[in-house]
Structures are given as C-alpha cells and as structure tokens.
Write a protein that binds this DNA or RNA. Structure first.
Lengths: 153, 153
DNA sequence: GAAAGAAACTTTATGCCTGCAGGAATCGAC
DNA sequence: GTCGATTCCTGCAGGCATAAAGTTTCTTTC
C-alpha cells in the first residue's frame, strides 16, 4: 500500500491522508486554544458558546432538533447543555404551541448581553490565531474549504 | 455573532471567523464519519487508532510524554487509552532503563498486525471521503494548511 | 376514532479529554 | 550525600460526545 516513488520529495503518506491529518491538526490546535480561553476568562465552554451563538442568530428561538442539526451534535447532548444554560438564566424554553413534542429555546435578554461579550472575545481570539496567516491565503483557504465541505456533503 | 448555520448559505461574518468555522465543520464531519466506521467495523475508536499509528512509526517505542505531545492530548488521557490497548494485547510497556520515571510503550507483534488492517481501512475511508475533492484542490489545500499550521504555532 | 407508525425529545451507558493533585524518580546546588 | 525543584506518570472530578433505549406527542390508516 505505501509505494514511495524513489525520486519524489513526498515526506510521507499519500496526498489524501496528509490533507486529512493536517486539517485535523490545525482544527485541534485552534480549538484547544479557544477552549482554554473560554475556561480561563469566562468560566464557560466552547459548546455552550456555540449554542448561544446559534440562538443569537435566531430571534424567534429554535427547537432542540434544529439546534443539534446546526451544531452537528447529537440530540441528547444538546439537552444537557441547554439545561445548564437554562440554570444560568441565559436561555429559556417553552413548549411549542403547535407541536407539544418540541421545546423552543431562545436567548433571554441577559443571555443576549452575556453572549455579546463572549462573541467579541471569541472573535478576538480567532483573529489573533490567524493573525500571521495572510489575508489572501485566508481567502484561498476559505474557498477550498467551502468546496471541500460541499464535496463531502 | 456570526457563524454560519451549516445548512444555510449565510455569507455574513468576517473572513477569519468564516475560515475558522468552515475548518472546524469539515474536520468534524470527517471525524464523525471515521469514528463511526471504527466503531461499526472494528469495535474500536479513533483515539486508540491514533496511538497505534503513532507507535507504528516508532520502531523503538515511545515514552508516554512523547505520545501525548505527538497526539496533542493530555498525559492522563494517554495513560487510560494505553492501558486499554495493553489489556487487548496490542501494546506493551516497560520501564525506561535510563530513566525509571518513564515507561516506554511499543506495539506488540500482534498489535502491529492488527494495526495494519486498521490503517488500510482508515486510509480507504479517508480516500472515500475526499473522493469528490479534486486532486489539484487537495494539493492546494495541503499547502495552505501547512502554511496555516506553522503560522499558528 | 382507535391502533400502528413516526417524530421530538430525554435518559442511560460508555468513552474521550482536560486540568489538577499526588507519588516516584531524577537532577542540581550545595 | 542531601535537600529542593523539576520531570514523568497516574488518579480523579467534571464536561462533552455518541448510540441506543424509553416517553410523550403527533400523524396516518383503516
């Protein structure tokens, strides 16, 4: 399986494997940094922020299923995190009047205020992480990642 | 603030945030697929595979600390996973003769055999995931990700 | 309108991951 | 030597993730 072409400069591995490993490495490095910042500076976590961010874009609230699909996580997972945010008074939920199976979750006014601070800090950390990565490269990378995302559907 | 809901076409957001969100999305999608394949077809997990893969590249074995640094995970985490692999007879460990604080972990012959099968399947899954993403784009993406990784170090 | 089926959500079991506390071994400065 | 600091690893609590099973609530079919 590992044919290494004698004259090639290939460091190791096939192209697709190397792409995947690098992709995962970059994501992990940045994610780890963000997680630590959230913990150190706000005593919260990235998953909680993700939920707040998703709700912030939905003025009328979202059902649990919409949340879990948007965040690419399982249903049961959202249940637990939303409950914590509820206990902190950042989100509220009520039964969907049109379908009693669903609960509709939305940010509380206080949650919206708290989230604004988190979002600003978050953006700063991301900007900082990518500060040494040229804007032009960012544009190319974004285009390629967008292409990749649709190709892996 | 602005992340893009996976399903939506929302263009909003600053460049750096959009790069980060797409990067994370792609990584999560592929990672989730790999995890499920490992579970379904081999009853194992991606972290265990990662450790085996790292050890496979180190004929003389590695210390726990080297493993955790290579994998970007914490020390205590490696301890637990290595113990499981040990119970399955895939890896063995012995005290470093030159430094009794360290344990040196290496693949057993059986571990090497098992890993070969896992690696082949893993490569197949990655190839399949990237099948619709053109080779030329892969090359560009790899170059950009390599540049990104060094810029965020 | 009642039973069968599907859908939305929660619960449970299991596993990874981090940070931190703690024990054992090593290293360094006397 | 020996005391103190550092290094390497393990143990543990807490949080996030999944899959699978269980509840409640529609929806469909007759």
């Amino acid at each position: 399986m590992e044919k290494t072409i004698p004259g090639s400069t290939a460091p190791s591995g096939t192209l697709d494997l190397r792409v995947w490993v690098r992709l995962l490495d970059c994501a992990k490095i940045i994610e780890k940094r963000l997680r630590r910042n959230f913990e150190d500076q706000f005593s919260t976590t990235l998953p909680r922020f993700d939920i707040l961010a998703t709700l912030d874009r939905a003025p009328d609230g979202l059902r649990m299923g919409e949340l879990s699909r948007a965040l690419l996580v399982s249903n049961g997972n959202v249940t637990a995190i939303v409950r914590q945010l509820q206990e902190q008074g950042l989100v509220s939920s009520y039964t969907d009047p049109e379908d009693a199976r669903s609960a509709i979750v939305s940010l509380t006014p206080n949650g919206r205020v708290q989230f604004a601070a988190l979002a600003e800090a978050h953006h700063g950390w991301v900007r900082e992480a990518l500060a040494d990565f040229p804007e032009d490269s960012q544009r190319q990378l974004l285009a390629l990642l967008t292409q990749l995302k649709t190709s892996i559907l």
